[in-house]
Design a protein around this nucleic acid. Structure first.
Length: 828
RNA sequence: GCCCCUAUAGCCCAAUGGCAGAGGCAGUCGACUUAAAAUCGACACAGUGUGGGUUCGAGUCCCACUAGGGGCACCA
């Protein structure tokens, strides 16, 4: 805004309004939710908390604009809304910035938090500033450690050695989500596997509940997120089948979703990188052992990019061992291959090349026989090279012959179970949650390793295990946690035996921090409990959660998991953390996500300076459905600012006094106002914010017309409409609305003024326009009484010249009458 | 390969199975002005991606296809 011409009182001055109201709101604290004796019904609205990676950006601006619409709406409807905010402040970006600039991650993080906090205040976020948390504060992560120990004591946190994602350049373990297309998201190095002993949370123990309870969220969560979660958990039903191995005491169990094809198994495959493969090959010939060793080395060197290539030829090694098919006694050669995964099912499969494409590809590569056992009326897979996986009739399968696929699956399960050679089983794509990180900037894992006592949990009274200062520590990645270099911190007395022991040097995945934070807002500063049970009972679960779809799987799945565990621990009485979920889209620029490399970043601060906070917020709400992406090039914050000025001027034009009796006001405008009130609430509750804004615009247009027309600025209906505009606009444009409220003669606090219900008696019509269609096409319309009977309406329609002309020579075969609004005449 | 979402005017988007247009952007014209900006007002613009089907009636429901977007993917 240029300041060359100082705006007059009657002009809308964006920056002056912003400066004026902020300090007043600081005093007023309209969104405090913890006031004693507050009798309003409670509602918990939560925005996903930000990572403090810099100042707020356009994405935050959208998320918080939309979260505010919902939060402010419920306040206007008379609820005591808890709408807190915090920072997800541990994590890799802070550590990277620290390494790059030689700074302490702490300073960088807390500077950014201060910056974001100040921007949120300016952005007029309706947060309860008494409920703030920062996950890197010891007062917060102390309870992360408490949570870890609860899990540990319940057997849900454990250590195991397995192959994890490893970035050879960063020298650190990577989470699955940090591996993008087989590359490290930080440095684009090719990610490899490394066998490491790491901490896991046993999320797989909750897989069934995590999947089944998604049904309870149906209708309240976006169906996209529900299907992504279902996909991710990936439950498949089938059978476990035991195969006796020649020369081995224990049978090997395989999981299959197609036990009906058991008679078609012609070989067995075990994962090359499994312990089983190594064991089976141990007794084989020298040449096979050498071949296997070379193959295993090759497999270990390969990476996800190679592994995921779709046209990759099948490879493997014949281990020279045999499995016995439990149903027909056939000897099946056992191979090791990398197309079988060590950590899914039992790391071994029965191969049925006729009815599984992967097995067929392998059989072809190795010259193995193909045995058809389901006749699908298709050509022989051995000839075509295409496995037949559809429905069909069982053949060459003993007792199963003649059965359908489904019947055969049931029958074989019975047979196997009766013989003690197998049973029905299910498997999940979901793996246990690897929570260890070899990083500095995270919650230390509260375990002490003692040579005598093994893993020893840190006693509760010694929590929190605080992070040592980063000063003097080498944060550069080198394959082990930087905490290993904090000698004084590292070496402690064992809590059990008092002997020399060492702390666990890993820190927790930051997804642990964010998977229960919504409960911490109930008492963010408590040093006694993670959260008070009675407060949780009163406020939780979250009624409305708002955030990006990027967290559709991991964060939401982990939060659901932790919630279920806390439920089982008796801490809370609900099993799902977020009753209702809104995923807002992204803010794009010229069709693509904003990024430095594309050079299409729109700076939020510049938009705010140019158009004002309200115009940017309004643009976010008005651009389209909230779940759609917003292309900033397609929308008009200038247009939003223009509308706000128009609304503001209308309020400024009102000349009647507050409290004037509205009953005598202009009927037409009153009707427009109450039609608005009838429609607005359902639109907001249905997340149709863009339509809600359009309705406000409509009302402002009607208001303008009334002021300039017959009603005039003193008409009580004009005041009524202007007040409703101010109140409803407060959801989208709090500064403008507050200023309008003052112009209308009220004390500050439009946010709390309350949206009334519509007076439906004003909307009762005595007549409506009826339409007449002939064969579905509009032919005439006329005004009729609302209580017109079907017969009267039909008669009236049939007497219309336009209708008779449309019917012409044709014969009327049917007449549909929907009094009082419609007649449709069907002809032949 | 499997699963899901979307498609309406130059653009962003509305439309309980019942008159395709609520709202906005951009546009044209007019009023105001010495002029411009701002403001106020008016106007114009598509028959709903394509092909079928259900129905008295389809943008809306069903099927197929096309295009764009997303998720999962050697998970046995």
């Amino acid at each position: 805004m240029t300041e060359q011409n100082a705006p007059a009182e009657s002009e809308y001055d964006v920056s002056a309004i912003q400066d004026k109201w902020l300090p007043i709101w600081d005093e007023l604290r309209p969104f405090a939710s913890g006031n004693a004796g507050d009798a309003r019904p409670k509602k918990y609205v939560l925005d996903m908390f930000p990572y403090p990676s810099g100042d707020l950006h356009m994405g935050h601006a959208e998320a918080y604009a939309l979260g505010d619409v919902i939060s402010r709406y419920w306040v206007q409807k008379g609820f005591n809304v808890m709408h807190p905010i915090g920072w997800d402040s541990f994590g890799l970006p802070a550590e990277n910035a620290a390494i790059k600039r030689g700074l302490d991650p702490k300073g960088w993080t807390y500077d950014n938090i201060a910056q974001q906090r100040s921007s949120m205040r300016r952005y007029a976020c309706s947060f309860d500033w008494d409920r703030v948390l920062v996950t890197s504060d010891p007062i917060y992560y102390r309870w992360n450690q408490w949570l870890f120990l609860e899990f540990y004591n319940k057997g849900l946190a454990y250590r195991k050695n397995s192959n994890v994602n490893w970035c050879p350049s960063c020298q650190t373990v990577l989470a699955n989500e940090q591996v993008v297309q087989g590359l490290c998201e930080r440095c684009d190095s090719v990610v490899t596997k490394k066998a490491l002993t790491q901490w896991y949370f046993k999320v797989t123990e909750y897989a069934d509940r995590l999947l089944d309870d998604l049904d309870t969220l149906e209708g309240n969560w976006p169906s996209k997120v529900l299907s992504m979660q279902r996909n991710w958990i990936g439950r498949s039903y089938g059978a476990d089948v035991d195969f006796v191995i020649e020369g081995r005491t224990e049978p090997v169990t395989v999981f299959t979703t197609r036990p009906d094809t058991l008679f078609g198994a012609t070989f067995m495959v075990v994962a090359a990188d499994s312990a089983l493969a190594t064991e089976l090959v141990a007794g084989a010939d020298e040449s096979i052992r050498a071949e296997f060793a070379a193959y295993l080395e090759m497999v270990k060197q390969s990476n996800d990019i190679e592994r995921l290539a779709t046209d990759r030829p099948k490879t493997g090694v014949n281990l020279g061992r045999f499995a016995i098919n439990p149903v027909n006694g056939e000897k099946l050669p056992i191979f090791a291959s990398d197309y079988v995964l060590a950590d899914y099912g039992h790391g071994a499969i029965m191969a049925v090349p006729a009815h599984d494409q992967r097995d067929l590809d392998f059989a072809k590569a190795m010259g193995l026989p193909v045995q058809v056992v389901v006749d699908t009326d298709e050509e022989d897979p051995a000839v075509t090279g295409v496995a037949t996986t559809g429905e069909g009739v069982l053949v060459n399968s003993g007792a199963l012959n003649g059965l359908s696929k489904t019947d055969a699956i049931n029958k074989i399960a019975e047979i196997l179970e009766a013989d003690g050679k197998g049973k029905k089983a299910k498997n999940f794509r979901l793996r246990d949650w690897l929570i260890s990180r070899q990083r500095y900037w995270g919650t230390p894992i509260p375990i002490i390793h003692c040579a005598n006592c093994g893993e020893v949990p840190v006693p509760q009274d010694q929590l929190p295990v605080e992070l040592p200062s980063a000063e003097g520590l080498d944060l550069k990645p080198k394959g082990t946690s930087p905490l290993g270099g904090a000698t004084e911190w590292l070496n402690v007395a064992c809590p059990k035996c008092g002997g020399a022991a060492q702390r666990d040097t890993d820190t927790m995945d930051t997804f642990v921090d964010s998977s229960w934070y919504f409960l911490r807002f109930l008492s963010p500063n408590s040093t006694e409990v993670a959260f008070p049970k009675d407060e949780a009972a009163a406020w939780a679960p979250v009624d409305q959660y708002v955030g990006g779809v990027t967290h559709a799987i991991l964060h939401l799945l982990y939060a659901r998991f932790i919630t279920k565990v806390l439920h089982d621990l008796g801490q809370i009485d609900f099993e799902e953390p977020f009753t209702r979920l809104l995923n807002q889209g992204m803010v794009l620029m010229n069709g693509s996500a904003m990024s430095k490399s594309r050079g299409n970043i729109v700076a939020l601060s510049e938009q705010l300076d140019e158009h004002g906070v309200d115009a940017v917020r309004l643009t976010m709400s008005f651009a389209g459905p909230p779940e759609d992406d917003i292309d900033w090039a397609d929308v008009s914050p200038a247009g939003a600012a223009k509308f706000l000025a128009r609304a503001w001027r209308a309020a400024n034009d009102v000349t009647s006094e507050p409290g004037v009796a509205v009953a005598t006001g202009n009927r037409e405008l009153r009707k427009a106002t109450h039609t608005f009130l009838r429609d607005f609430g359902p639109l907001i509750e249905g997340f149709k914010f863009n339509v809600g804004v359009a309705k406000i615009m409509e009302l402002v247009n009607a208001l303008r017309k009334a002021i300039d027309g017959e009603a005039g600025s003193a008409d009580p209906a004009v005041r009524e409409a202007a007040e409703i505009v101010a109140k409803s606009l407060s959801l989208f444009a709090p500064y403008t609305a507050e200023d309008m409220w003052q112009k209308l003669g009220y004390e500050p606090g439009v946010a709390l003024a309350g949206l009334p219900d519509a007076d439906l008696s004003l909307l009762v019509e005595s007549s409506v326009v009826a339409i007449v269609q002939v064969d579905g096409k509009l032919r005439d319309k006329f005004e009729v009484a609302v209580d017109i009977t079907e017969d009267e309406l039909r008669a009236k329609a049939m007497s219309s010249d336009a209708v008779l002309r449309a019917i012409g020579e044709k014969t009327v075969v049917n007449t549909i009458v929907r009094a009082p609004k419609l007649v449709n005449i069907a002809t032949k």
